[in-house]
């Protein structure tokens, strides 16, 4: 049986496939190139994510310069990925990296782009960064009350951890600064000083309640309690801060010196009955930290 139609049809098919051979090949090439590029973009995104995690690890180990270098590398990688294939996830990672590099304005812009590409939570983060930037500008211009109000809003209602921590830090700094700058005679000033300290304490206690495992908040608490001359509690908070981890080597060392200061004050002020138990507790900590003696931290050279 003759099947002319099917023959024609086959011919047609062959002809069309012959006629379209070049563009078909092109399509295949384009398809594979696309797959390759998507693969490259997602593998470079994956690489950037790995580098970001490595940078976080370095930061936690207080290897500051190396952490900064790792964040910078992550930022370069993620920028290259974005130029090939922009995505909400990539912009989000870029923003997170920029926050760690203290490039908060750039981070705000990255989060806004991430939000416009579907990363909803980034919008709120961008708003918080903007508010913090605004508070810093007010503070720099001497509008202390306005900046305190903005930091207060962020400390209380903020959702993005780095901004909330920075806002709490600034609030406590400003409160303590007011305390230190107080030039009234001691007795007249005492009531006002107590009020300022109570405010500072309330700010940090609320922050600790919200994030109890944040070493930085315990560090701040130790600072405030030292102003109240509650050296026992201040020492406990400083120990807790050291155990939970602190954001920079400078703060880490300052916290160690706070531990020593409290130890020396308690040595002078505790009753003989309390001293033995206190010393035993203190020695167990410094043994754990490998300090050569009660008043020499491991990093001390001179």
């Amino acid at each position: 049986m003759k099947k002319p139609d099917s023959g024609r049809c086959n011919n047609k098919l062959r002809l069309s496939s012959l006629a379209g051979g070049g563009s078909g090949l092109k399509l295949v090439v384009v398809f594979f190139a696309l797959i390759f590029l998507i693969g490259c973009a997602s593998s470079s995104l994956l690489r950037a994510k790995t580098d970001y995690l490595q940078a976080e690890r370095l930061q936690r180990s207080l290897r500051q310069e190396e952490a900064v270098a790792a964040y910078q590398k992550t930022r370069q990688e993620i920028s290259a990925t974005i130029s090939r294939k922009p995505s909400g996830e990539a912009y989000l990672l870029k923003g997170l990296t920029e926050v760690n590099l203290d490039l908060w304005e750039e981070a705000e812009s990255s989060f806004r782009l991430a939000a416009s590409l579907g990363e909803d939570k980034a919008q709120a983060w961008a708003e918080e960064l903007r508010l913090f930037g605004l508070a810093r500008s007010f503070e720099a211009q001497g509008w202390a009350e306005t900046s305190v109000r903005l930091y207060g809003v962020l400390a209380e209602k903020g959702k993005y951890q780095p901004v909330v921590r920075a806002a709490v830090g600034r609030l406590v700094d400003l409160r303590l600064k007011a305390l230190v700058d107080f030039s009234e005679p001691l007795e007249a000033a005492q009531k006002e000083k107590n009020k300022i300290l109570a405010e500072a304490l309330k700010i940090v206690e609320r922050a600790v309640e919200q994030e109890p495992a944040c070493g930085y908040y315990h560090y701040l608490l130790a600072q405030v309690l030292a102003h109240q001359k509650d050296y026992n509690q201040s020492l406990e908070e400083a120990v807790m801060a050291k155990e939970l981890g602190l954001p920079s080597e400078e703060i880490w060392r300052d916290n160690d010196l706070q531990v020593i200061f409290c130890y020396e004050q308690l040595e002078k002020n505790l009753q003989p009955g309390e001293l033995a138990a206190f010393r035993a507790r203190y020695h167990s900590w410094i043994k754990k930290w490998k300090w050569p003696d009660e008043t020499t931290p491991d990093w001390k050279r001179s």
């Binding site: 310069e65 900064v68 600072q223 080597e249």
Partner: peptide
């Protein structure tokens, strides 16, 4: 990175003691 440590804020607010 040399500049990272040069933030005087912590230092300014220490108690007299």
């Amino acid at each position: 990175g040399l500049k990272l440590w040069l933030e005087p804020e912590i230092v300014n607010n220490k108690p007299d003691e």
